[in-house]
């Protein structure tokens, strides 16, 4: 319990740092946002009026305090380019990106754990070289390229889905999941190779530990030794690794959304960057940081549960 509190406190501090960083980096941008919103043709009076309306003429600390309190309330301000609040603009897109990321993780875990176990079992056969080589190559394929290959194979040749025709979860939840499957797979692919290789290595390392000999000395069958003793220990580093990859998976989803035309946070982030829509960019960064830090917290707690040796 103490552990959970300490971890949560660290998480809150990290998030605070992130928000400070985000706010001040965007305040330091040269140029007046009011000008970029009105265009360079605007009259100075109009600019001054909008500057005042946006509250940009007040001291920066005041603006930070106000902004921070609003963020805590879930209010990220108004979008510059879309005439609506950032919160309402992003609420759908968050769900899509989260669905995509979670799906990628689920696919990764569902494939890599059995695969890693299988690879460990075959580690002294000829198959080992085959698996290691394939893994090595897959690890080197960036998700946007594997996304294109998947589009080519499953979309163009096999016609299992229509590239670019995203199905909203509002129209059909399962249709949406179905469309997100290939994007999620292309994010998961390199992670599957990494996790299964890691699991294979840890299973082999754990199998040589002395407690395994003890387990055999009690008359356990090989299977029981594996599932009761080795696997739990071998999964501990895998859980840590999966936690660390969550950030990568979110980054991956930003890129892969572009490949498969998925209207999530990644797409709107890119359009906001080219449109200099700062409130939207700020909000997306904070949200993504929140997801990453949150997932790290969950992994830490899981890890704590799995490995009783970890103490504060």
């Amino acid at each position: 319990m103490k552990y959970a509190i300490k971890k949560t406190a660290t998480m809150i501090i990290t998030l605070f740092f992130v928000s400070v960083l985000v706010f001040f980096s965007f305040s330091l941008i040269p140029g007046n946002p009011a000008v970029s919103r009105l265009g360079t043709e605007a009259t100075p009076e109009k600019v001054a009026a909008l500057t005042h309306e946006m509250g940009l003429d007040r001291p920066v600390m005041v603006r930070f305090g106000e902004w921070f309190i609003n963020v805590l309330r879930g209010d990220f301000g108004q979008s510059y380019s879309y005439r609506q609040s950032v919160t309402s603009l992003l609420s759908d897109k968050i769900k899509i990106t989260l669905m995509l990321s979670v799906m990628a993780i689920v696919i990764c875990a569902a494939i890599s754990v059995p695969l890693g176990i299988f690879m460990a079992r075959k580690s002294d056969s000829k198959l080992d070289i085959f698996f290691s080589s394939v893994n090595q190559v897959i690890m080197a394929i960036p998700s946007f390229f594997s996304g294109i290959i998947l589009t080519l194979i499953f979309g163009v040749i096999l016609k299992l889905f229509t590239p670019g025709a995203f199905v909203s979860y509002k129209t059909s939840f399962w249709g949406c999941l179905g469309y997100l499957f290939f994007p999620a797979l292309s994010i998961a692919l390199p992670k599957i190779s990494m996790v299964s290789k890691l699991l294979k290595d840890t299973v082999i390392a754990e199998s040589q530990k002395e407690y395994v000999r003890t387990a055999y000395s009690r008359g356990n069958r090989t299977k029981a030794v594996f599932y009761r003793h080795v696997l739990g220990n071998a999964l501990i580093p895998v859980i840590t690794f999966m936690g660390m990859t969550f950030a990568d998976i979110i980054a991956g989803s930003i890129i892969v959304e572009q490949v498969f035309s998925v209207p999530g946070l990644g797409r709107i982030l890119l359009t906001s960057i080219s449109g200099r829509d700062y409130p939207v960019i700020e909000a997306i960064i904070l949200l993504l940081a929140f997801f990453v830090v949150m997932s790290n917290l969950i992994v830490d707690l899981l890890y704590h549960k799995f490995d009783p040796r970890i103490h504060v």
Partner: peptide, 23 residues
């Protein structure tokens, strides 16, 4: 190191996107 952690919480691509968003 706290700052470092805050920055590490971001994948590098995302961080780079932010900087490019700024400059």
């Amino acid at each position: 190191m706290r700052l470092n952690d805050a920055v590490l919480a971001f994948p590098s691509v995302l961080l780079a996107l932010v900087v490019i968003g700024l400059y």
